[in-house]
Simulated assay, not measured.
Amino acid sequence: MKINFKKTYKFAVKSALYISLFGTGFVLILMNLFYKNQLKHQVAFGIIFIISIYIFSFLVLQYRVERFIYRRVKKIYDEVSLLESTTLINQPITTDMETLSREVKKFATDKKLEIEMLEIREQYRREFLGNVSHELKTPLFTVQGYVSTLLDGAMDDKNIRKKYLKRAEKGVERLIYIVEDLDMITKLESGDLDLNMTDFNIVELIQNVFDLLEMKADKKKIKLAFESKNVQSVIIRGDQDRIQQVLENLIVNSIKYGKDGGLTEVGVVNLTKKKVLIRISDNGEGVEKQNIPRLFERFYRVDKSGTRSEGGSGLGLAIVKHIIEAHKEKVYVESEFGIGSEFSFTLEKAHKAVKTEVK
């Protein structure tokens, strides 16, 4: 590593001045004691002496300080370079202690933050791998169990064979579902998933999602409705299929964690001339405050029981976040435990909204 050396003369200048003043004053006092009547010669001698001693002191001090400090400071920089720091080793080495202390303190603070971030990422990585393992293990063991039972002799019974094959098929479908969701998130994060941007009516799309999920909601007697009967129809600019996926994921979540006989409402709010806010609210379980910041993490579940009684891949909210961010928009969540939750996101308008009646 090539090291740039930045000199500082402050210490040598001051020290040389002190030495020169002391040395010259002391010599002049001695000369005055021994040569009282030669004032003119004393002044000339004093001027020459102070200049000479100052230059000599400055050179000696600067050389000695540079050699003394540089060797020690260079060792610090060399040790720091092992950490491949771009914040310190690329700076010229300085012999100014105040500057050096400030740089090292800043470097130490930056490194502390970097280490903390690495620890958080490592914890997230461990949790993520554990969750992936759990999500894949359950359907894999299910399929393995049914197939093994069939191979052990149950295949001879036609009814059992058909029933077990259907159950094994469901396990395979769940595996495919999880893998497809993981693949989508990977593409969204890497920017490989292209969005097909078109103009579409967001109110009609929400109504279509209601129709698709009506049977699922009926099982828990949950009503799907708009906040207002005379909701405005708004033409949106975005990827219709991806926005439908966002709506499906959020509404399915509200059904899963909603109470029997509950209500899921979707609101379409005009924020500005260019933006619209879509709100999905329910009166279900709600989420405790400490869990809200982590809701959009992959495989993160508020329910730690491990039963996964409500199914799903555990990737729904992570996909929602990535799709909305791919549209360069924001997603929000508000929730109160025991009362309900509201998820919302913004979208860009394409055309002026017109009023329409919702059936």
Results as ranks from 00 to 15, higher is better:
residue 241 D to I: 14
residue 268 V to T: 13
residue 232 Q to P: 13
residue 256 K to T: 05
residue 241 D to M: 14
residue 270 N to R: 12
residue 237 R to T: 11
residue 252 V to N: 12
residue 258 G to C: 10
residue 233 S to R: 08
residue 253 N to W: 04
residue 238 G to R: 04
residue 256 K to E: 11
residue 245 Q to T: 13
residue 242 R to K: 15
residue 258 G to I: 08
residue 235 I to M: 01
residue 255 I to A: 07
residue 251 I to H: 10
residue 253 N to H: 09
residue 264 T to R: 02
residue 255 I to N: 05
residue 238 G to H: 09
residue 268 V to P: 10
residue 252 V to P: 05
residue 244 Q to A: 14
residue 260 D to N: 06
residue 243 I to D: 01
residue 261 G to T: 05
residue 241 D to Q: 14
residue 264 T to E: 07
residue 232 Q to R: 12
residue 241 D to N: 15
residue 248 E to R: 11
residue 263 L to G: 05
residue 234 V to A: 02
residue 256 K to G: 08
residue 266 V to T: 13
residue 255 I to L: 09
residue 263 L to S: 08
residue 250 L to C: 02
residue 256 K to N: 14
residue 237 R to P: 05
residue 239 D to L: 09
residue 245 Q to P: 03
residue 235 I to A: 00
residue 271 L to S: 11
residue 266 V to I: 13
residue 251 I to Q: 07
residue 236 I to Q: 00
residue 240 Q to W: 03
residue 249 N to H: 15
residue 240 Q to G: 08
residue 267 G to W: 02
residue 254 S to C: 12
residue 253 N to M: 08
residue 265 E to L: 14
residue 252 V to Q: 10
residue 252 V to W: 06
residue 266 V to P: 09
residue 264 T to F: 05
residue 247 L to V: 01
residue 269 V to D: 15
residue 262 G to N: 04
residue 255 I to E: 04
residue 261 G to Y: 01
residue 250 L to K: 02
residue 243 I to M: 05
residue 247 L to K: 00
residue 233 S to M: 06
residue 245 Q to F: 07
residue 232 Q to A: 14
residue 244 Q to V: 01
residue 250 L to V: 00
residue 267 G to K: 12
residue 251 I to G: 08
residue 262 G to W: 00
residue 247 L to F: 03
residue 247 L to Y: 00
residue 232 Q to L: 15
residue 236 I to Y: 02
residue 248 E to F: 07
residue 254 S to T: 12
residue 271 L to F: 09
residue 271 L to P: 03
residue 232 Q to H: 12
residue 242 R to L: 14
residue 272 T to Q: 06
residue 251 I to E: 10
residue 257 Y to E: 04
residue 257 Y to C: 06
residue 263 L to Q: 09
residue 234 V to P: 01
residue 251 I to C: 14
residue 239 D to G: 12
residue 244 Q to T: 03
residue 267 G to L: 09
residue 270 N to P: 09
residue 250 L to D: 01
residue 249 N to Q: 11
residue 245 Q to D: 12
residue 242 R to E: 10
residue 268 V to Q: 10
residue 268 V to H: 12
residue 234 V to W: 01
residue 237 R to M: 12
residue 265 E to S: 13
residue 250 L to A: 03
residue 246 V to D: 00
residue 258 G to V: 08
residue 256 K to P: 05
residue 261 G to E: 04
residue 244 Q to D: 04
residue 250 L to Q: 03
residue 260 D to P: 00
residue 232 Q to S: 13
residue 260 D to A: 04
residue 236 I to G: 01
residue 248 E to A: 11
residue 248 E to P: 06
residue 233 S to I: 03
residue 238 G to L: 04
residue 266 V to M: 11
residue 272 T to L: 03
residue 235 I to R: 00
residue 270 N to S: 14
residue 238 G to P: 04
residue 258 G to Y: 06
residue 246 V to S: 00
residue 249 N to P: 06
residue 256 K to I: 06
residue 254 S to L: 09
residue 243 I to Y: 05
residue 268 V to D: 08
residue 241 D to K: 15
residue 262 G to T: 05
residue 253 N to Q: 08
residue 241 D to W: 07
residue 239 D to E: 12
residue 260 D to K: 05
residue 264 T to Q: 04
residue 257 Y to I: 04
residue 267 G to D: 15
residue 263 L to T: 08
residue 254 S to P: 07
residue 264 T to A: 12
residue 247 L to P: 02
residue 240 Q to S: 13
residue 248 E to W: 02
residue 232 Q to N: 15
residue 241 D to C: 12
residue 264 T to G: 05
residue 236 I to L: 02
residue 258 G to D: 07
residue 268 V to L: 15
